[in-house]
Amino acid sequence: MAKIIYKPHAKIYKDWILTKIFIYCFYVAVICFCLIGVYFIEVKNIEFLKYIFIFFVSVMLIFFRPIIKFFMYVLFFNNINKIRKVIKDLKEGTFSVSIKLPPEGEDEDEFVKFLRDINWMIHSIVNEYLKLEKEKKQVEERARFYLRASCTDSLTGLYNKKAFFKLMYNILSQGQTGFLIFLDIDNFKRINDRYGHLVGDDCLQKLAKIILLSIREKVDFACRYGGDEFCIFLKTLKKEVVKKVLKRMFLLFQNEIKLAEISFSCGIVNVEKINLPNSLDLKDYLDDVFKKADVSLYKAKKTKGKIVFYNKSFKK
């Protein structure tokens, strides 16, 4: 992003005024010298002053242009380079504040008008830049909002099913391992029928918060799979860690939701590191992992409030 740097350039205008004053003073000095010379030569009739006068006039005529050019460079053209620097800054995206000038008058010379035109140009560019920056921020905020909305569940704030599947795909493609947990709230339909959908939604939101409190941020992740089902992926190779996390979640769930008939069941499958030749095989393997977790959940729900790890003896 371009950076706005403020650089006062009031000296440019002051030096231009000094240049004009110097030139006028030089003209007056030359005229006065000529008048004094004529007076002493013609009126006083001092002959030797005639040669001195001719000598000084010749010197002034010879060196007039270099002297004026020198002072014009020091007091004027040097500041033109500063104006060029301002324009260069604008081209590179670094903006300078406008040149300080006196109030606008009717009889202004062309150089002052030129400085006012530069002020107008800088003012227009800065305003347009700030307008574009504001619009850019609004577009970025909308993009972030729609990105979050496309990958999160609106009720719980967890990932949605599509985003979770994509994360799992990336995990497997990187050769990472862990445990996939399918979690389902027991008797959830009964809760909705007895207490209403607002209470049911509150249960889902509280469970989502408990899940986020129980897993490691930026390491593990979870989603609302659909209805009252949740998915959790824990990056660990130890069953004891999985059991510990679920036990903590179950205790928090009981303390948070004061309903005797509510609990949750979990089906768990180990996601192993495998070598697959292409992305289609990886997708098939991921589908198979989800099916195994679903079968394990089905076994767990038969007794309710239970966790079941997938066993090869289970039929998919």
Rank of each mutant, 00 (worst) to 15 (best):
A2P: 12
I12K: 00
D15N: 12
D15S: 12
I17V: 14
L18T: 07
L18H: 11
Y27M: 15
V30E: 13
Y39V: 06
E42F: 14
E42P: 01
I46D: 04
F48L: 08
F55L: 11
V57W: 04
S58R: 12
M60E: 13
M60V: 12
I62E: 10
I67T: 13
K69W: 11
F77V: 14
N78I: 05
R84L: 15
K88R: 15
S98D: 09
P102V: 09
V112H: 13
L115R: 01
M121R: 06
H123Y: 14
K131A: 10
E133C: 07
K137N: 14
R142W: 07
T152R: 00
T152Y: 04
Y159M: 08
K161F: 11
L172M: 15
S173G: 09
G175E: 04
I191F: 04
D193Q: 06
R194V: 11
R194L: 11
Y195C: 03
V199F: 09
K206W: 05
R216D: 06
V219R: 10
D220G: 02
R224N: 00
F230G: 00
K235M: 09
K238F: 11
K238V: 07
K243Y: 08
L252K: 07
I257Y: 03
C266N: 06
N270R: 10
E272L: 06
I274P: 03
P277H: 03
Y285D: 03
D287T: 00
K291G: 07
L297H: 02
K304C: 04
K304I: 04
K304G: 01
G305K: 03
V308M: 05
N311F: 12
